[in-house]
Design a protein around this nucleic acid. Sequence first.
DNA 1: AAAGTATGTAACCTATCGGTAACAAGCAAG
DNA 2: CTTGCTTGTTACCGATAGGTTACATACTTT
Lengths: 195, 195
Amino acid sequence: MTTKDRNQTERRILDAVGTIVETEGFEAVGVNAVASASGVSKVLIYRYFGSIEQLLAKYLEDNDFWLNTEFPIQQYNNVKEFSKAVFRSYIDMLRKSPALRKLYRWELTTDNPAIAGLRERRERTAMDIINAVSRQSGQDIDQVAGISTLITGSVSYLCILAENCAVYNSLEINSDSGWEKLLKTIDFMFDKIFD
Amino acid sequence: MTTKDRNQTERRILDAVGTIVETEGFEAVGVNAVASASGVSKVLIYRYFGSIEQLLAKYLEDNDFWLNTEFPIQQYNNVKEFSKAVFRSYIDMLRKSPALRKLYRWELTTDNPAIAGLRERRERTAMDIINAVSRQSGQDIDQVAGISTLITGSVSYLCILAENCAVYNSLEINSDSGWEKLLKTIDFMFDKIFD
DNA sequence: AAAGTATGTAACCTATCGGTAACAAGCAAG
DNA sequence: CTTGCTTGTTACCGATAGGTTACATACTTT
């Protein structure tokens, strides 16, 4: 660093966190790794962010990592279509974003305040949708929550797994064609359930 | 070690791997950790097993970690009951075994020959069952595979997650009652699908 | 211009990692 | 008994982790 610009330095550090997260995951975010990836002395990481945990908290905050997509149920013809659209977008999000996959993976091995916060927000968003679907469809809320859990749970699992494994139950979880098949199954399920 | 007994020493080492896996996971299995947990010099780990990877391969081999439960479909009244029983047992297995959960978690971040071998065997076992169900029920095999993927995928995810998170979509994934609810949803699904 | 403060780097500290070399003690075969 | 092999421990090595101290350089304020 030749220029003295704290804002730029902080951004460099946060950007370095981003690239490490996307390529190696949150587990690999350490002081030394961030320092060398950003080209900044590690002292500044402590000075400006306090600790790696606080740095990661800031990164999560900046990157809006909870389910923030809006789903106005009124805009859809019926509950079935609405449900399909929600899960389609869930799959897209997770398949497109390496950082989000790494976050979900990290959460399986870690518990800390930042993660707890994300989980709360996610939980609220999810339960709002589940409530709306239950009300409009007349289905028991536990069943709606259960179906939703089966789908989002397996999608999360498969998206993480796909980074290290190409096939699961003969589905090519690395390719669009495999996910098309799964989407067809989800649609099939909803056709059977919402009659 | 005062007595000189290679067999006993090897068992001590493998047992130490087991306890580390169950408590901290495969990621924590290192030479130093195993040496101190087993009370054996780490030189012997290299001498008797070659490397940590080979030690872990041996551990996996000894512990029969692929889906080995037999499910004779003929013994069940109908396909629906059979399917429910299969997934019930899948959930039980994963909820009862910390080591299995840690293995599934490890697989999400790792790829190596030992894991690839497990995956192949699992894939074969799963596809055998899926084939049998498809044949007997007349359902399209891709749909059966899809449903199976949704269930096992989410169950795997939730069982891993439950070690760090108590609630998912309002389901208490830490308690029997939460899993009872999910089982009810699975049963509900099968009732709708297999009419 | 001088003093004080914000920004930066280099060097060092301790702990721990995987891995090896050197050596001690027991056992078995001649 | 002695030679040789197996089993074991201690002590060390280089690399890297997180974390801190000391110091240099620039900008601001008076």
